[in-house]
């Protein structure tokens, strides 16, 4: 439906909104970028979080301190963290940007789409690592000590113990986190994108959810935005169903 934002006027246009979206090359490009952005940040976030969780579980000293520090970014208001990242990597004044440039890399997210995409991925991963980390630490703690002791007595080294015992036991949590990461990537990253690149340059970092937000909320084009939300939901549902079918089989629920 095409609506006037005030609700005063509505024209039922059937599937015209959908047709227009699917026919537009910009939309298709968004879909493409969204998919690979989501997958990459989901995988990277979990991998890093797992690494940190394992390390935290392993070290005895300073465990509490590390946990607190690594969890801190989660406490920052999203509105601030987005702005901070944009600023830090701003090619003109950002300290980190200048650092990168001093290494000889021509960093400029305003004119190089790849830089912008990279920045958006890094910012999203940074914000979301805490979420994965917290659950992985909790899950690793739930691994029964008795099993680990037994394995140690059998002569298994720590890394081996991790891969053969701890990891399989935390697969329910990993599965949960994969699904959540995908959902996060698909839906909740628009705050970051809005602060860091605004979907630019030239639509390079325009994910689907950002378009929904832009079109619906900012442009008040409620009809198109609703159509986009529907498409986005369908994609999300497909992703999730796929994950449930393919991965849940590998998840060990009972010890």
């Amino acid at each position: 439906m095409q609506v006037d934002p005030f609700g005063a006027r509505e024209i039922f246009v059937g599937f015209a909104n959908f047709a227009q979206l699917l026919g537009s090359p910009d939309y298709r490009q968004s879909v493409f970028f969204t998919l690979w952005f989501t997958v990459i940040q989901a995988v990277v976030t979990i991998a890093l979080a797992l690494l940190f969780a394992f390390a935290t579980d392993f070290v005895i000293r300073g465990r509490g301190l590390y946990k607190s520090v690594i969890l801190m970014p989660y406490a920052i208001a999203p509105v601030i963290s987005g702005v901070l990242w944009a600023f830090l990597f701003n090619p003109a004044v950002g300290p980190l940007a200048q650092f990168i440039q001093s290494l000889g890399i021509p960093w400029d997210p305003n004119r190089r789409p790849f830089d912008a995409q990279l920045l958006v991925i890094v910012a999203s991963v940074w914000k979301h690592i805490c979420y994965d980390y917290i659950f992985l630490v909790a899950a690793l703690l739930a691994v029964p000590q008795s099993l680990l002791e037994a394995a140690k007595l059998d002569g298994a080294r720590p890394v081996r113990r991790f891969f053969t015992i701890s990891l399989p036991l935390v697969t329910p949590t990993i599965f949960f986190l994969m699904v959540m990461n995908v959902v996060y990537g698909l839906f909740e990253t628009f705050g970051i994108i809005d602060a860091v690149t605004r979907g630019g340059p030239a639509g390079a970092t325009n994910t689907l959810v950002y378009k929904v937000y832009q079109d619906g909320f900012v442009q008040l084009n409620l009809g198109s935005s609703a159509a986009q939300s529907v498409i986005l939901m369908i994609i999300a549902i497909l992703f999730t169903v796929l994950q449930f079918r393919a991965l849940e089989r590998r998840v060990n629920y009972q010890v």
């Binding site: 520090v69 801190m72 980190l96």
Partner: peptide, 23 residues
């Protein structure tokens, strides 16, 4: 392994806190 883990965690903590420091 202990050293490796500490190193990883220190790096992680630093990376994670850098933006906060600038704030």
């Amino acid at each position: 392994l202990t050293i490796f883990c500490h190193a990883v965690l220190l790096l992680g903590a630093a990376a994670v806190c850098l933006p906060l420091y600038f704030a």
